[in-house]
Design a protein around this nucleic acid. Structure first.
Lengths: 215, 215
DNA sequence: GGTATTTTATGCGAGACAGTATAAAAAACA
DNA sequence: TGTTTTTTATACTGTCTCGCATAAAATACC
């Protein structure tokens, strides 16, 4: 990890690709098409690397998939952590999380793709225990993140003191899951927005000032 | 459809398979492995039919998939209609629906498979408009079913008169979705049960008589 | 400039895959 | 018994797919 200083002159022919960018492209490809439907030629075309380079850099197809999926999770973490850390009423933080998720799931060069974890990897998870383990971790982490959020909100008096943060968290995760699925089948943005409104008011109670939208 | 009376003696060599059973086996296979990861040899082994018979009976791989998925939806309809038609408090009907879904998603000869619609078909939906259309229909139907259920419950005074049946329905569908995904990654039954409890009390309010379980 | 080292480029080979051709089998009909 | 009809059984074809072998290219070191 630390071994490669940016100044180090490597000995042989220089790489014609940026490993990080190439892996991001591979991620896009798997995200869209899933494991089985993605061929090494697809990956080659997406990354601009030829097959031997792919192998040298990332290993076989399975290895590339796992690395791509890990990258997806890292990207999601980086994207959502600031929103979660932000202080503010749960209602608002929740809405921001759901809306960011919605945007992520609707994004994509060839149309909406949903969530790599929820739609694609979960599907492969039956066949491959390694992938299953990663998806289980991802979903557990999401549950825990939401639970912590609700616990803090209860402590701050934003929610009824007898609320169950774990129960709330599971419904919040369920919202993420349904957003992922609906985005994957090209649900229009306003359908997802209606869903977010429904979930937020179910989780935090109906908004007294009539649904103030941020932005 | 009506042409084949059960007494009709057909002319040539008799079939060695039952089309309905064979299609059910094909459904199981696609349900478990998805479209791309399922080979015609897999289907051949599962159904007991050889490749030419598969083609004669159902068409090419794509055709078999669509027919298998339609069969899945028909099966789900048949299984859930009686539960939905049943009279009783929404709270109880909802619980029964979620528990039946949970059982269905956890079932399978080789371990839990989740929901064909939600996990497998939704994943393929990006590549194939025909499949996407079917999944969209399936999810819309689910939303509408739940909405009707809540509308009736509001009319009967079981829920607050200012409840929004469509919003409630979307959260109920979200519960189905998260159950499907969690089952697919082998979540233990009691985790799913906890999720059902959380969702039901979120949708219908906390149970005053401490959570009476049916059966 | 020559050598060692690392990467790219091309393409090969074994196997998997989807779909089909051909022939054998099993029934009704005459 | 022989013919027709429908299905099964076997095997083939062309294509795709994965992974790797081999050679050329591009750099640092000497």
């Amino acid at each position: 990890m630390v071994q490669k200083s940016p100044e180090t002159k490597r000995r042989g022919r220089p790489r014609s690709y940026e490993p990080d960018i190439a892996l991001a492209r591979a991620m896009e490809t798997f995200w869209k098409s899933g494991y089985a439907a993605t061929t090494l030629d697809d990956l080659s075309a997406a990354t601009g690397m030829n097959r031997p380079s792919l192998y040298a850099a990332f290993g076989d197809k399975q290895d590339i998939y796992v690395k791509a999926y890990r990258k997806y999770r890292a990207r999601v973490r980086d994207e959502f952590e600031p929103i979660i850390e932000e202080s503010g009423p749960v209602r608002l933080v929740l809405r921001r999380i759901f809306e960011a998720a919605s945007e992520l799931y609707l994004s994509g060069p060839d149309g909406p793709r949903g969530c790599f974890s929820v739609v694609t990897a979960a599907s492969e998870a039956v066949a491959d225990p390694q992938i299953r383990k990663l998806v289980v971790e991802a979903i557990a982490a999401l549950d825990e993140t939401f639970a912590a959020l609700f616990t803090k909100a209860i402590a701050r008096g934003e929610l009824a003191p007898d609320s169950n943060p774990l129960a709330l968290a599971k419904v919040a995760t369920a919202t993420i899951h349904t957003l992922a699925i609906r985005a994957r089948i090209h649900a229009p943005r306003d359908e997802l927005q209606a869903l977010i409104d429904a979930a937020v008011s179910m989780l935090c109670g109906p908004a007294d000032p009539p649904a103030r939208r941020h932005r």
